[in-house]
Each structure stands twice: as C-alpha cells, then as structure tokens.
C-alpha cells in the first residue's frame, strides 16, 4: 500500500517537474495585444476582413499587416477599441450596408422559363442565364440568405431577397455569393436607392418587369447631382444624395425607394428611422 502511494507519488512529481520545465521552455510568446484584440473582436469568423477568421485578423493586426478598420461587423465602436489596443490613430470606416437593388419579385417580373433545378442562385444562373427574364434581377433562390451569418436577409413570399439595414453588418458575404451582382454595398446613411439592376433599354425592361428602371432621366432632371445614368440605368450618387428623395414621386415605374419610408413589398422588416417625420 505504502509502496504504491510512494511510487505513484514519485512518478507524479517527476512528470509535474518535466511538464513545468517544458511549459517554460517551449512557451509560445503571444503578444498581449493579440489576446486583447481577440477579446473585442466579434468572434463570428465571417472573413469580411480578408483574413482567416477573427484570430487571423488579430494576428495580422499586431504584426502590422492589417489596419484596425477592416471589421465591418464590429462597426465604428470596435475600430476605435482596436486602435486603442494597438496604440494608433483610429480611422473609422463609414458603416456600409448591403442592398438588393431589385424589386421585381415573381409577380412583378416575368420568367423566361420554369426552373425545376436546385434551390441555389448559382446553379440556376448556369442554366440559360437563370429563369428570370431580366438579366440583372434577383433570382430569389435564397443563396444570399444562406450565406448571411447575421440572419439579416429574408425572402419574401414572391421570391425577392430583402436585407435588413439594421441587422446587416456589411460583411459582404452575400455580395460574394450572388451570381447576378444585384447586391451592392452602400453607405448606411444613404437610404434612397434606385431598385434596379438591368442595363437593358427601357422598352425591353418594360416587357419583363413592372418596376424596373427604364432610363427615362426624370430622376436626373429633378435632382441632377444625386443621380447618374449609365447604359439605361439610373443609380444614386451616394456622396451627394441629400436631396435624392425628391425624385421618388416623379419616377414613372416607382423604381426609387427610400428605405426609411419602408422596405420593398412583402418584407416584414420595418424602417427604424421613422422619427424623421416626427422631427419635421
């Protein structure tokens, strides 16, 4: 009995000493700033910064390979925190949000054919360029919704992706997965968007979509600095869009939408900035 206790005790002692020495000798030096950065990073490993996960970004930060303003999900608050940890000046990136520039759901936009394949936009796009007659419109097969790590995208009953401005952190995962480039990153402050992604001529757009941009220039004539037209498609000039909302009632196809007034038809998301009208 005594022998057993002693021998086991000795083995334990030796092993403990060996482990202790090994721990000291092979200790991996971790920059305390890296640990601190890991503490504040969101930890969702979305990859928006371009590094493999939050740990990868933390490492890149302390080795000076990355700027502290590359984490869109963390927002301005995180960027200042990271800058403080690293001891550098904070250059805060403006908050961006993803918008699906399309309102042509299955009731408003025509289909070229009935698609019976996989529930995946990329698979559908490979078959004759997708079932939607419009070459730029949302296919509505929810690839972006599945890619979103923040549950910020919903599909309406008529097959249109809608992104919540509040839940979207700007990680761009949906932008990467969309085969039709219909999702765009826009400044969070800009709530007015031209909801169309078709560069076809007006007559062609009218044939396949009730709510597409026909390139009529009316918005540009109303607020010249806030809209530009390229290849029969109007887009908002986001740097100077303060008065962009003035063109909304003039648009003949109701293609311009102010997200502060409401989300596209069928969406359950509610605009948060309703206080604008209260203040006025």
């Amino acid at each position: 009995m005594l022998a057993a206790i002693l021998s086991l005790g000795c083995i334990g002692m030796v092993a403990a000493i060996a482990l202790g020495i090994a721990a000291k000798k092979f200790a991996v030096e971790v920059d305390p700033r890296e640990l601190a950065a890991m503490e504040v990073l969101p930890g969702i490993n979305c990859g928006a910064c371009g590094f493999p996960g939050c740990a990868g970004y933390a490492k890149a930060l302390v080795t000076g390979k990355a700027e502290p303003n590359l984490c869109p999900p963390g927002g301005a608050e995180l960027m200042t925190k990271l800058a403080r940890i690293l001891g550098v000046e904070a250059i805060v990136m403006a908050r961006q949000t993803a918008v699906v520039l399309c309102q042509g759901d299955n009731r408003k936009a025509q289909l070229k054919f009935r698609y019976l394949g996989l529930e995946d936009c990329n698979a559908a796009q490979r078959i004759a360029g997708g079932p939607k007659a419009c070459p730029g419109g949302c296919l509505g097969l929810a690839s972006c919704q599945r890619a979103c790590p923040f549950d910020a995208i919903e599909m309406t009953a008529d097959g249109l992706a809608v992104i919540s401005r509040e839940k979207c952190t700007g990680c761009r995962k949906c932008v990467a997965v969309c085969p039709r480039d219909v999702i765009r990153m826009t400044p969070y402050e800009s709530s007015v968007h031209v909801m169309c992604n078709s560069h076809d001529k007006g007559a062609a757009v009218r044939k396949y979509c009730q709510v597409g941009c026909i390139g009529c220039h009316i918005c540009h004539k109303t607020v010249p600095e806030a809209y530009k037209l390229e290849d029969f498609l109007a887009t908002v000039v986001y740097e100077q869009d303060a008065q962009a909302f003035e063109a909304i009632p003039k648009c003949p196809t109701k293609c311009i939408r102010d997200f502060n007034e409401g989300y596209p038809e069928g969406s359950t998301f509610l605009p948060i900035n309703n206080d604008k009208s209260d203040a006025a």
């Binding site: 394949g117 996989l118 698979a123 490979r126």
Partner: peptide, 12 residues
C-alpha cells in the same frame, strides 16, 4: 434527390 444536378453544381 437531384444528385447529378448537385454534383454538377459541385464540379462548377
């Protein structure tokens, strides 16, 4: 199950 369709998707 749309097996060959999925595999084509994977191949792409």
């Amino acid at each position: 199950i749309p097996l060959v369709q999925l595999i084509r998707h994977g191949k792409a």
